[in-house]
Write a protein that binds this DNA or RNA. Structure first.
Lengths: 148, 148
DNA sequence: GGATAAAAAGATTTTAAATTCCGGTGTTCT
DNA sequence: AGAACACCGGAATTTAAAATCTTTTTATCC
């Protein structure tokens, strides 16, 4: 469904959202060990989000990462799209090409009509689920009760 | 979503379902050129389905493949599971582990509750969509109107 | 039986994703 | 200033998926 890279990425952003704040940054070493993700690799991934403006980064001792935006304005959709692109939101399950056209004159994959309902629900889920909402979800629960 | 291999596989099975019959087998060369899939690679994939009992194969001239079962008894779910496994039906979007447990005492991924509805709809789609239904769908339409 | 056609199977290569290595740059602290 | 720390960025390596090569087996037709 999502690439390895992308799942690491989203989990890390959530972790940063929960654990960091303006005065409390969190560094790659910590994230990597907590989420059990190879550190150097994670570093690369976070760089992508920094460039995309999702994260802010600070160098030196006391350095680390924090969210750059209001978490309620960041959807899973955006986070995924930055890493994996929008293929899963645009293409049919079996097809390789877009095949989501409104005009019925173009090519359709064999399960286009049946799958499009599923795909739009999937897309809606990703678009509606914000980082903020996920973070709130954690407030009620104990830490080790959840999988990150 | 699905692996390259798996999409080739499903498309080929559909093609075989439509084009072949008991007295009219269809060979890899034909399928590969029609669906634009590397022939030798496709050959390997079809072997998996033969072993799984989904396809029947015959060697020699006039040889080729045909369905081994009633197409209405074969779901997309089975076809996908044989190639890609059941990961997409069992795991949460962000997590790596199952996390679909009924008892709320075990670990849950951050979006478990919200995603599970989407996942079950996805799973239902794959389970309900049979090869037979897809084949019927073709009966009404012209060939080059669809994407295979 | 020999030529031909097609699947089966094992080994190998190619490609892309995942991961690591390493030198560089900016920051903080003493 | 200088040491330590943490992010940055390019290159190289590893791993797994995708694709190809080659040989073998089986069946058909003349």
């Amino acid at each position: 469904m999502l690439s390895n890279t992308c799942r690491y990425a989203v989990r890390s952003i959530i972790y940063i959202g929960i654990k960091s704040s303006v005065d409390q940054l969190i560094n790659v070493k910590k994230i990597a060990s907590e989420l059990d993700v190879p550190m150097q690799f994670l570093s690369k991934i976070l760089q992508i989000y920094v460039k995309a403006g999702i994260l802010k980064s600070f160098k030196g001792p006391t350095g680390g990462f924090s969210l750059a935006l209001d978490p309620y304005s960041v959807s899973l959709y955006e986070l995924v799209k930055i890493i994996d692109g929008d293929q899963i939101f645009e293409t049919c399950v079996i097809g390789t090409k877009p095949c989501y056209s409104k005009n019925s004159n173009s090519m359709k994959c064999p399960v286009h009509d049946q799958y499009s309902a599923v795909r739009s629900q999937l897309t809606e889920f990703f678009k509606n689920e914000t980082l903020g909402a996920i973070m709130d979800n954690y407030a009620n629960k104990t830490d080790d009760f959840l999988m990150l």
